Amino acid sequence: MDTQTLHAYDTGAGAYADDWETQPAGTDLQELVRTYFALGPTADVGCGSGRDTAWLTANGFQAVGLEPSDGLRAEAERRHPDVPFHAAALPELDGVAPNSFTNVLCETVIMHLAPDAVGPAVRRLVDILKPGGVLYLTWRVSSTDQRDDSGRLYAAVDLTTVKDTLGACDLLLDEEITSVSSGKTIHRLIARKR
Rank of each mutant, 00 (worst) to 15 (best):
D94E: 14
G65Q: 00
T102I: 07
V45C: 05
L93H: 00
P115C: 11
P68A: 11
G71H: 07
G167F: 09
E67L: 13
E107N: 15
T22D: 11
A25G: 06
V96A: 08
G71D: 13
A54I: 01
A89C: 03
T22R: 12
D158R: 05
P81Y: 06
D52V: 09
P115H: 04
H86F: 10
K193A: 04
L189G: 00
D158G: 03
L66E: 01
T102M: 09
D145W: 08
E92T: 14
T22Q: 14
V162Y: 00
D170T: 15
S179I: 09
A191K: 01
L72P: 03
A25E: 13
W55Q: 09
V96Y: 08
A58D: 08
S181C: 12
E77Y: 01
A74K: 10
T53S: 09
A114D: 10
R188I: 07
D70M: 06
R34Y: 06
I177D: 05
L129S: 08
D18L: 12
A8I: 10
R147E: 11
Y154D: 03
A114P: 09
R73M: 15
L137H: 01
L171Y: 04
C169R: 00
T178N: 11
R51S: 04
V162L: 06
L66F: 07
Q30D: 13
I110R: 01
R124I: 03
D18G: 09
T185A: 12
H187Q: 13
D28G: 12
G133A: 11
E31T: 15
M1N: 13
S182Y: 06
C47R: 00
D170R: 13
F101L: 11
T185N: 12
G26H: 11
R34C: 09
